[in-house]
Computed example of a mutant assay.
Amino acid sequence: MSARDVVFPAGRQALYEKNRYSPAIRSNGFLFVSGQVGSRPDGSPEPDLEAQVTLAFANLNAILEAAGCTFKDVVDVTVFIVDPESKFERIWNVVGENWGDAPYPTLTGIGVTWLYGFDFEIKVIAKIPESAVG
């Protein structure tokens, strides 16, 4: 097996190493990004819901940028929401600010009961642009 081609965002490698997972892996022209939450630099949850979703996108975008991608390169999205019935509208207003224009990526939304103190998590698969391959 070949070594994994790991992508780390600037300044957060120690946090990922502490938690023993890779933020993203490049493979066969795609970028597979681990679920991103609205964590502060020390890994703790941002308590305000809207700010937490905004921070989750900032953390996601940092990984995409480190791989030479943007959200426009994302082809598949999975979101996890704690108590979506009460939080969906507030979350989706923030998501819309980060989503961009059509055509949109595919989307799977999953309601969960626990996300380690977070209310929202987003994981994506992106097609790495040819200009970023090399």
Rank of each mutant, 00 (worst) to 15 (best):
S2E: 14
A3V: 15
V6P: 00
F8E: 14
F8R: 11
P9A: 09
A10I: 09
Q13N: 03
Q13M: 13
R20E: 12
Y21H: 08
S22C: 07
P23M: 12
P23E: 12
I25V: 15
R26P: 00
R26I: 05
S34T: 10
S34M: 01
G35E: 10
G35K: 05
Q36R: 12
Q36A: 09
V37Q: 01
G38Q: 09
S39F: 08
S39C: 06
R40V: 01
P41Q: 07
P41L: 12
S44C: 03
P47D: 14
L49R: 07
L49W: 03
E50L: 03
V53L: 02
A56R: 11
A56E: 06
N59Q: 04
I63F: 03
L64V: 04
L64C: 00
L64I: 06
L64E: 05
E65K: 11
C69K: 02
C69L: 06
C69D: 03
C69V: 03
T70G: 06
K72C: 00
K72P: 00
D73I: 04
D73G: 08
V74M: 09
V74I: 08
D76H: 10
D76E: 13
T78V: 12
T78M: 06
I81M: 13
P84S: 13
P84I: 15
E85R: 13
K87Y: 05
K87I: 01
F88E: 08
V94E: 10
E97I: 09
W99V: 06
W99L: 11
G100M: 09
A102W: 13
P103D: 13
P105D: 15
T106S: 14
L107V: 15
G109E: 12
G111L: 12
V112H: 09
T113L: 02
W114C: 04
G117P: 06
F118I: 06
F118C: 04
D119H: 14
D119C: 04
F120S: 09
I122G: 01
I125H: 03
S131H: 01
S131I: 05
A132T: 05
G134C: 02
G134K: 05
